[in-house]
Amino acid sequence: MTKLVEISGLNIRFTGERTVYAVNDLSLSLGDGEVLGLLGESGSGKSVTLRALMRLLPKKRTQITGKVNVMGRDVLAMNEEQLSSFRGQTVSMIFQEPALALDPVYTIGAQIAESVVRHEGKSYAEGRARALEMLDVVRIPSAKRRLDAYPHEMSGGMRQRAMIALALACRPKILLADEPTTALDATVQIQILLLLRELQREFGMSVIFVTHDIGVAIEICDRVAVMYAGQIVEQGTLRDIVRSPVHPYAKGLLASTVHGAKRGQRLETIPGTPPSLGERPHNCSFAPRCAAAQPRCLEQLPGNVDVGPGRAARCVLAEPVTALS
């Protein structure tokens, strides 16, 4: 499988009143036609990583080091002009809140047409035609009429479909999805998830899907990277992660789901709260909350250990497993 996205040693630091080490030494790759889930709780750095891939972070206050390669091109070295042709055509993004991401003063049709005109150099009429086609693709009923609708005239699920149509209008190779179903109602969420799954196959796109909800990841991802405190603590195929997590945080996260728990029975929890990210991690960030922590967890940062094919965990516990096999 060729790698569309290769990130290695990515560090993202926000400066200003206080410094936040949002992402630390993160490496991941995305294969052709693959759906990768970034799973983690708020503040774990999953959205920041996604935004860095499209260089959407505020320039003045962000320091990014490391390598971000998308289809052989160095994203961190691009200038503004290169970036704007890169966005939309190669990589495109959908957001959690379509009401905020869409422009309120233009119709859906005009917004999609504009992106086609801008990125593909087509005429506005051709752009409109593509817009109509895209609204059909995302299964918006009576698409022709909806072309002239403003975002506020649509329901939440419909707006999310319109945003997906906009993101896919220029046939991007890679789609970045930042919690696109979190703000939706349950019955709408499942519709959008199934639509995305279908479109991913139809368009042959690769997708990076950020979510905090394991159930959502199960519905859509092939591979999952679990994030904690700005690092990927474990990655592997969805099945492996769900069935046999190695890292204690991944284990705890899966065990603390309410799903299937009996009433009256206590839920398994991860004690404590995530660290503040005020300094660069020099040991395992999860150690203070970890039941299996050892003295050496506090001494140094555990390395990324390969646990199996395409599977790695950043934990000292993962080490003996490889020694045995």
Binding site: Q189, I190, L194, D213
Partner: peptide, 26 residues
């Protein structure tokens, strides 16, 4: 429909068809 709309918890048994279509009416 509400119960069927819950995401699956088993990677081998994903939801295949949405239980209902459309958004809740205004």
């Amino acid at each position: 429909a509400l119960l069927a709309a819950m995401p699956s918890s088993d990677p081998d048994r994903r939801t295949e068809t949405p239980p209902i279509t459309g958004d809740p009416p205004n």
